[in-house]
């Protein structure tokens, strides 16, 4: 049985850093009365959306398995976790900003931004799975950042 010390450090280190960031965020929000019902609404809505993304990812990986592409369990679980937590965080940020911005929300920019996040990430995930080179999935990050930027900072109408 091989024990991956680096993997264990990464998994539990990531968990510890995430838990600390979560606790720090809650403490800061509490100071500004931020843990209110709208925050709860945003958190629940984004968690619900994250489960849609996770369901789509599960179907995506099942399809890959059915067409004969082999994947290791750790890669699949890592990508599922990344997709779930990432979509949870991203949708929470988008919802928070759109609730509090003065200008009306332009749904076409949100849809465009989400597409720019999802499509390259899906494509690079496929490339990662096909080539077994894990870091190819990271190439989707610049597109995801651009998509997030478009969804959040929508250009003003002329």
């Amino acid at each position: 049985m091989d024990v991956s010390i680096g993997g264990l450090i990464g998994v539990y280190g990531g968990l510890a850093i995430g838990a600390l960031a979560w606790a720090f965020g809650r403490k800061k929000l509490k100071k500004e009365r931020g843990l209110d019902e709208m925050q709860t609404h945003i958190r629940e809505k984004s968690r619900s959306l994250a489960w849609f993304v996770t369901t789509a990812l599960i179907y995506f990986f099942l399809t890959l398995t059915m067409i004969g592409i082999d994947m290791s369990m750790s890669v699949v679980l890592s990508l599922l976790l990344l997709g779930h937590l990432g979509s949870w965080g991203i949708t929470a940020v988008i919802l928070s900003i759109n609730f509090t911005r003065e200008a009306p929300v332009k749904s076409q920019y949100i849809a465009g931004g989400i597409l720019l996040i999802c499509l390259p990430l899906t494509a690079f995930t496929l490339i990662t799975v096909a080539t077994q080179v894990w870091w190819y999935v990271l190439l989707g990050i610049p597109f995801a950042v651009a998509g997030l930027f478009i969804a959040l900072f929508q250009p003003k109408s002329a």
Partner: peptide
């Protein structure tokens, strides 16, 4: 007892309060 952001969202009609 809520955040200022919640008042902004309620005023603009983007969030319906409980």
């Amino acid at each position: 007892g809520v955040s200022r952001q919640s008042i902004v969202a309620i005023e603009s009609g983007k969030y319906n309060p409980s």
